[in-house]
Nucleic acid binder design. Sequence first.
DNA 1: TTCGTAATTGCGAATAATTGCAACTACATT
DNA 2: AATGTAGTTGCAATTATTCGCAATTACGAA
Lengths: 142, 142
Amino acid sequence: MNDIDQIIETLRGKQFRITPQRELIIRALADVDEDDHLTAEEIHKRVQVHTSAVNIATVYRTLDMLVEEGLVSRIDLGGDKEVFATVHHGMHMHLVCRQCGHVLDADAQILRDVGQYLFSEYEFVADLEHISLFGICANCQQ
Amino acid sequence: MNDIDQIIETLRGKQFRITPQRELIIRALADVDEDDHLTAEEIHKRVQVHTSAVNIATVYRTLDMLVEEGLVSRIDLGGDKEVFATVHHGMHMHLVCRQCGHVLDADAQILRDVGQYLFSEYEFVADLEHISLFGICANCQQ
DNA sequence: TTCGTAATTGCGAATAATTGCAACTACATT
DNA sequence: AATGTAGTTGCAATTATTCGCAATTACGAA
Ligand SMILES: [Mn+2]
Ligand SMILES: [Mn+2]
Ligand SMILES: [Zn+2]
Ligand SMILES: [Zn+2]
């Protein structure tokens, strides 16, 4: 079963209805390159290649739902840029420079300890597959 | 020297001009209780108690500047709620449930290792004093 | 199949946040 | 103290996102 069907099956299991709009949005998200992300606006554009009949409000609502269900991750790449990706976008984190905005991908294995700690101490299951951390990049430290 | 003067001195050292607007905004931010945060809108309201002559755009721009300079932290408390606090708001993290929106404060000592790793491996100085992590809270796990 | 109904969508309006630009002002220099 | 100027602000316009609600539709039950 591919990534798209996987997501759709999960949604069915949770009694969500599979509308053409949702299918197109999920497909757009899953069809990007492994290490790519899309903004809500970009997803909307890609969906409209197939049919102009998907409203931008529906894109926003569907993305909120997919994030809430844990099927898609919402990533803050600094101030204005918010992007989305499915779980097939492998585990890593984004180091975002708060000065120049540069984004560097980094290994996220070190977060495993954090996840275990948060669960054992607070019974909280943290999403650590794909997060952003802010700070100052090597360049901006002079 | 108190928190407010500290911030103002730092700004002066970086050639930023100290306008009445900026002073009021910094004061509003620093005058909250130790464990409190304010939204941009709330800061605007508090500033207007003193004078109605501060535009909301100036509040947004000043906050962006303070965050960029590392003097204030911007915290995402889930989707719509973004709050700000100065550094006197002690080190901890926010565990935000993506299902019910509940926010739990947690110890952040465990992030020290993460910070060291990111610096040694990527020369990135991460801001880990005050971050949010998303996931599922104990309650929403059934 | 057809039907009933709650979930979902589209649309337009409301709200939040950002931006361009002319006017203003903090502050270094004289 | 007066001046010059680059940094900052206010305002209005723009853009991004959310919301209310009536119309539509997915899908379980008949
Ligand atoms: Mn990524
Ligand atoms: Mn806090
Ligand atoms: Zn940088
Ligand atoms: Zn919860």
